[in-house]
């Protein structure tokens, strides 16, 4: 089932932003290969270009140079196969929870059955919130609504920008588990940006550390055991976190 077919290829991507009269190199020489059913956690210091990289992979901003391929096909625009969850979730405040969850499906004209909707909501524990507006929800609920919204779309690739950053430790842990559960069942791929070394170790089959200046990926760490039961409390995970912390310090 888990073929190692390549899903996403990021080839030599760079991004330069104009900065007054000068130019600011935010990304350079980024190469990523992501197989179907695989996950990558990207970490690095604030301002190193993580969000920029994610937006480029989502087809929302164009790279200064380099190429993107999805299933072997070059792309430069947004695609229904790629879904993105940004840090503040991007839920229009004027849409109820029900409308927000259905928004993407509506835009992409994907039929959604009531059963499917019900299942998803119970999986994510967001039942009974249909008539509320985003500002009436807790941060964790908002996050789960944002995730429900893209799971209805059945994307092949999920891009997550610090999705659990604003949550308390317990809620965060719960949502990490939930993400992994759905990931196991659905078989999509995801790339998660996080500045939390523990989260990176829990969610990424590979962990990439970005340079704070120069904008490249300085280190890639394999983390093959991340899906095993109770990984969070294993020595392996503990070691991974420690290793990652050292790499991050060195890249400063």
């Amino acid at each position: 089932m888990n073929s190692s077919k390549n899903l996403l290829r990021v080839e030599n991507i760079s991004k330069v932003f104009p900065n007054g009269n000068e130019e600011k190199v935010v990304l350079s020489g980024i190469n990523i290969d992501l197989a179907e059913g695989e996950s990558i956690a990207i970490t690095g210091q604030s301002g190193c270009g993580k969000t920029t990289l994610l937006l480029i992979m989502a087809g929302l901003i164009s790279p200064t140079s380099g190429n993107l391929f999805l299933n072997g096909k070059a792309y430069s625009e947004t695609s229904n196969d790629i879904a993105l969850v940004l840090q503040d979730y991007g839920l229009p405040p004027w849409k109820t929870v029900a409308d927000n969850i259905r928004l993407g499906a509506r835009l992409q004209k994907i039929p959604v059955s009531d059963d499917e909707l019900k299942n998803l909501k119970s999986q994510l524990k967001i039942e009974g919130l249909d008539h509320l507006y985003p500002h009436q929800l807790s941060g964790g609920q908002r996050q789960r609504v944002a995730i429900a919204r893209i799971l209805l779309l059945k994307p092949k690739l999920l891009l997550l920008d610090e999705p659990f950053g604003a949550l308390d430790a317990l809620t965060r842990e719960r949502l990490q588990k939930l993400l992994l559960n759905i990931f196991r069942r659905r078989g999509f791929s995801f790339i998660i940006v996080t500045h939390d070394v523990e989260e990176a170790s829990l969610l990424g089959k590979r962990i990439m550390v970005m340079d704070s200046n120069g904008g490249g990926i300085s280190t890639t760490i394999d983390n093959p055991g991340f899906l095993s039961e109770g990984y969070r409390d294993t020595q392996e995970c503990f070691e991974r976190v420690k290793q990652l912390r050292e790499v991050l310090k060195a890249s400063d």
Binding site: A58, G59, L86, Q87, G90, L107
Partner: peptide, 19 residues
């Protein structure tokens, strides 16, 4: 961020005005 999210959900220009 809302604009970016909306575009990545597949919304076109006209739908952007509407939604």
């Amino acid at each position: 961020e809302m604009i970016l999210s909306f575009r990545s959900l597949g919304g076109n220009k006209l739908q952007y005005y509407q939604h």
